[in-house]
């Protein structure tokens, strides 16, 4: 039988403690996220997926950038890294290559990952770096007070687009797909079952995976656009989301308060950066090739 983390933590699933408490830094709860924000739900889905996963908890590392979503790393009771704005992916790249045994998950926001960190995003996807990206898309820079970002739909109002945004936003699944991501999905903070299953799939598989989560920002984005609370936005997702698994990612554009296409769009096998590198060098260098042996095994004669 497969060992899962939930079995290891069974003793705690009683009436006094939330079953995810072993996965949270309880000394940091409550988190900073607003009431009806979707980030807590995304964290909940991620930790539920971790709990259901066969991957030992100590082998999972979370890397975040800066922003509301960037705070995620601070709440997970895993090896977790809160890095600089936009640099979560290259940090995760170094971490993964230095210890290939780790399952490295980057959880960060849309602005962090595809605006300031956009270059890292496309190159990690191109290399098929074996890391999992969970991109929580709330359509704006929320931590700094609600400025428009790379995903803000046209005409949506933000503090720096007081007359409405006139820039073309990214279609994130298409961006990830066209750069070579081997797993691409989009869900909303309402579709927690799909999201949890999707994160679980991404954790188990190898290669660059990208999961976009459309998530309500009640305090700045929704308020400025008079969209109500997060609960109203979940209702909007409920009424306007259409699951189209396997659809061409070019059709996943998001327009302001129009239909949301969600689902699992891409799931394909491709050799990861690490496997390509070791396989190629083995052939090219021949017998003399010494693969990277991982941490601790470093020469040294002092102390």
């Amino acid at each position: 039988m497969k060992h899962t983390n939930s079995q290891a933590d069974r003793q705690i699933a009683d009436g006094k403690h939330h079953p995810l408490e072993p996965y949270l830094r309880m000394d940091r709860i409550p988190h900073i996220w607003c009431s009806t924000c979707g980030l807590g739900t995304c964290l909940n889905s991620f930790l539920t997926a971790v709990r259901n996963s066969a991957i030992p908890r100590e082998n999972i590392a979370v890397v975040s950038g800066i922003g509301c979503t960037g705070r995620t790393a601070g709440y997970v009771n895993l090896d977790s890294f809160h890095t600089t704005h936009g640099r979560a992916i290259p940090f995760a790249t170094g971490l993964k290559l230095a210890n290939p045994e780790l399952t490295v998950v980057v959880i960060s926001g849309d602005g962090d990952l595809v605006a300031i960190g956009g270059n890292h995003f496309i190159h990690a996807a191109r290399r098929n770096m074996d890391i999992n990206i969970i991109c929580v898309n709330n359509f704006n820079y929320a931590m700094t007070g609600g400025q428009f970002g790379p995903t803000t739909p046209e005409t949506a109002r933000t503090t720096t687009a007081p007359y409405g945004s006139f820039e073309h936003p990214f279609n994130l699944p298409f961006l990830a797909d066209s750069c070579g991501a081997t797993y691409v999905a989009r869900w909303t903070a309402l579709h927690v079952r799909h999201l949890t299953a999707s994160i679980g799939e991404a954790l188990e598989r190898r290669g660059f995976s990208f999961i976009e989560v459309i998530s309500p920002c009640p305090t700045v984005y929704a308020r400025r656009n008079r969209l109500g609370t997060g609960l109203d936005l979940l209702q909007f997702y409920h009424d306007n989301s259409v699951i189209k698994n396997g659809i061409d990612t070019r059709e996943c554009d998001i327009r302001f308060q129009e239909q949301l296409i969600i689902g699992k769009f891409v799931d394909e096998e491709k050799t990861t950066f690490h496997d390509t590198m070791t396989g190629y060098l083995k052939d090219a260098v021949g017998e003399k090739y010494v693969p990277y042996v991982g941490p601790m095994e470093m020469p040294g004669n002092g102390d």
């Binding site: 890397v63 890294f81 890095t83 600089t84 936009g86 640099r87 992916i89 290259p90 940090f91 995760a92 790249t93 170094g94 971490l95 993964k96 290559l97 230095a98 210890n99 780790l102 270059n119 890292h120 190159h123 590198m277 990277y292 991982g294 941490p295 601790m296 470093m298």
Partner: peptide, 23 residues
């Protein structure tokens, strides 16, 4: 392991990650 990153921002971030990975 040598990796040529996409820029120097990434290079610096990657070595920090690698250091925390034990290298």
């Amino acid at each position: 392991t040598f990796i040529q990153m996409e820029d120097e921002l990434a290079s610096m971030a990657a070595i920090l990650g690698a250091a925390w990975g034990g290298a």
